[in-house]
Each structure stands twice: as C-alpha cells, then as structure tokens.
Computed example of a mutant assay.
Amino acid sequence: MARLISIFVGLGFVVVLAYSFIVGAYTAATEPHEPTAEHEFHLHTRDAHLQSAGWTGTFDVQQVQRGYQVYKEVCSACHSLRHVAFRNLAELGYSEAEVKAEAAAWQVPGIDPNTGEANMRPALPTDAFPSPYPNAVAAAAANNNAIPPDLSLIAKARHDGGNYVYSLLTGYADANSYEHDGKVLKEEFPDFSTPTGLHFNPYFPNLNLAMAPPLTTDGQVTYADGTEASVDQMSKDVAAFLVWTAEPTLQKRHQTGFPVVLFLIFATVLGFLAYRNVWRNVKH
C-alpha cells in the first residue's frame, strides 16, 4: 500500500512539473517582452577592416607592431598578456637584440640568488608579459572592484573579437545625450543611468562598463613609422595586435588550409573517376 501511495505521489509531482513547464513556455512564447535599454541600444560591432579578417586574412606586421606599442604604453597599465612570451615578438619582425631589449624593459617577479628572497628582475625573452597587479585582490581594489581581464585570448573569447575590441575602444559616449537611429536613450528610458565608477558604452552588453576610456586623445602614442596616431587608428592597431596574440598561427593556417582543401577536392574527383572506371561494366 505504501509503495502504491509513493507511486501516485511521484506521478503527481511529474504532472505538476510538466504543467508548470508547459504554462511557462507558452507564456514566454506569447507574452510580449518589456523593452529594455540593453536590448534597444546595444549595438553590433563595427568593421575595423583588419587585414587578418576573412578566410584569406594575413597580418599587417607593421600594424601589429603599432598595436604592440599601444598595448605597451596604454593597455599594459591594467591588462596582462600571460599567454604571450617576449620571444614571440620575433614573429613580428623584431630582431633577437630587440626582443631582449623589449624584455629587459619590463620587471617580473624573481628570486635573489644570494638570499632566496623574492624580488623584481628585468624580464628575459622566455618570460611572459607580466600582470601589472600582484594578485586579483589588488587588481579589483584598483579598478572599482572589477578585475581587468587578461588580453592574450580576448579576440577569441569575444564574438567577432577584433571588431569587438575596436568598437569598444571607440564606442564610449555620454548616456545623457546618446542617440541612435533617431531614438534618444534618455527619452526612451528616462530611468536609465550609468552608476558612479562605470562608463557608458553601447557596444558593451549591459551598456555600462567598468573600464574608463583608455584612448582619449589623438597623439596619445607616438608611432615610430610616422603613422598619425588618431584614437580610431590606435584602436584598430591594438585590435590587430590582440588578434595576433589570440591566434599567432592564423596566417600559416590560412596558407596551409587552401592547398589542403584543393588537394582534398582533387582526391575526391580522382576517387570518383576511379570508382566509375572500375565499376562501369558491373550491372546492378
């Protein structure tokens, strides 16, 4: 008897759960959603027209070098590149001496060989780019409780990564006067506000971003090749650099991929013709 009662109780739970699921799904599918500022004013990324984009993309080495300079002089104040070693810069055309000089300009944690005490030492080519903060707690304390993400793989971690970085860096605006497609944010959503310590950016999913605009004025970086360092140009260059850090073998992969695809197509055609030749006189 007890077993029969438990079976009926279990069936009752199943029925209630099924009913709740069906009603919830029907309600979600039929009831109109309340518009939100995040839905109405969040923008898709803009095209940075990077040379690395597309199936045949390659790296503009000079642009990637400029992007490294922007990272070094601006972004490295908050963001690390822990998956990139200084020796990887050789892939961008830097000589061995230049790589050693670049590495030596950075300080990384080390050990004093005489005392065994922790200290800071000049980096070696085998070292990875260091974090500007000793730990996550210090990073959060210095950035309004938001830990700056490592940028090594950011271009792969975000959809349309290179364009996302470019759009985000050039997308900061004033929420009080922001307008898009003829709609004014404050008129559509009077209660929308950017909390203290955050910054309005329509390319960020919830519109409010903890990172302050890092590139604010033209000429913030002086390029050695004479390129005009506008905010737009610096944003494109550092986006190109971060695409490279996320996928340094992209160019080789593209160069290898097309011959492989052509070979597979040729082999498929050859196999089909061989099949037709071998079985042409066999009746089914």
Rank of each mutant, 00 (worst) to 15 (best):
V9T: 14
G10N: 06
L11V: 15
L11G: 08
G12T: 15
V14Y: 11
V15F: 15
V16H: 01
V16M: 06
L17K: 06
Y19P: 01
S20Y: 12
S20D: 14
F21R: 07
F21H: 04
F21C: 06
F21K: 10
V23K: 04
V23N: 08
G24F: 09
G24T: 09
G24D: 13
A25L: 05
A25F: 08
Y26D: 04
T27Y: 15
A29T: 02
A29E: 07
E31C: 07
E31L: 04
E31M: 03
P32A: 11
H33D: 14
P35I: 03
T36K: 06
A37L: 05
H39A: 15
H42R: 14
H42W: 06
T45R: 03
T45H: 04
H49W: 08
L50K: 01
Q51D: 14
Q51H: 05
Q51C: 07
S52L: 06
S52Y: 08
A53W: 14
A53M: 12
W55I: 10
T58H: 07
T58D: 09
F59E: 06
F59Q: 02
F59R: 02
Q62I: 10
Q62E: 15
Q63Y: 01
Q63D: 02
Q63W: 02
V64F: 12
G67T: 13
Y68P: 00
Y71F: 11
Y71M: 01
K72F: 03
K72E: 12
E73T: 13
E73D: 15
V74T: 06
V74E: 01
C75Y: 08
S76C: 02
A77D: 11
C78D: 00
H79V: 04
S80C: 05
S80G: 10
S80Q: 03
L81S: 00
